[in-house]
Amino acid sequence: METTPTDEDLMRSYVAGDGRAFDALFDRYATRLHAFFARSFRSGSVANDLVQTTFLKIHAARGTFDTTMPVRPWLFGIASRVRIDELRRRYRDAARASDEDLSKMTLPVEGGAERWPEANEEAERVRAAVDGLPEGQRIVVLLHRFEGLTFGEIAEVLSQTEGTKLTEVAVRVRAFRAFAALREALSDLVEEPS
């Protein structure tokens, strides 16, 4: 019986130059990364470009991949760096925006026709509340709530993008703060009907 290769098996083959292993990884992650970027910037076309940028960076960095480590946080770590670069590009004062500044800024989302509609006004409010979170909390919500990463995996991702070693507990605290902030921002929506 043929077993499905793990991400790590595929990554090892890809690092060795196997184009089919790359295709398999691409098939597994391209749509997820696209969703991650699309949720971040509310734009499908920006997400298309960023997926390409991410895979080119993955390709360039594949030689540094530690084959004993899990692939998913590594891939999302690279995607998160691409996302940060795009965020910096969007701020007028990008050159002077420190990591701390970025972590506090709200999301400069794409406007216009590309913003896919939410089902109703309530959902639009939830979306806006997530977009309005400080970057440091928003990224945790995106990765945990929508991409299904564990707090441990998010700690790995953020350790890559923020340059300091984060613990699972620290990520959990950050996530709880984000959800508490969302709870406050959406308090009128979550009240039980009287």
């Binding site: 969703a35 499908g44 076309s45 896919w116 089902a119 959902a123 939830v126 997530v130 709530r145």
Partner: peptide, 12 residues
Amino acid sequence: LMDGLASPPEPS
């Protein structure tokens, strides 16, 4: 409410 958010469009 969060689970009910619309999925992003499929990639091109």
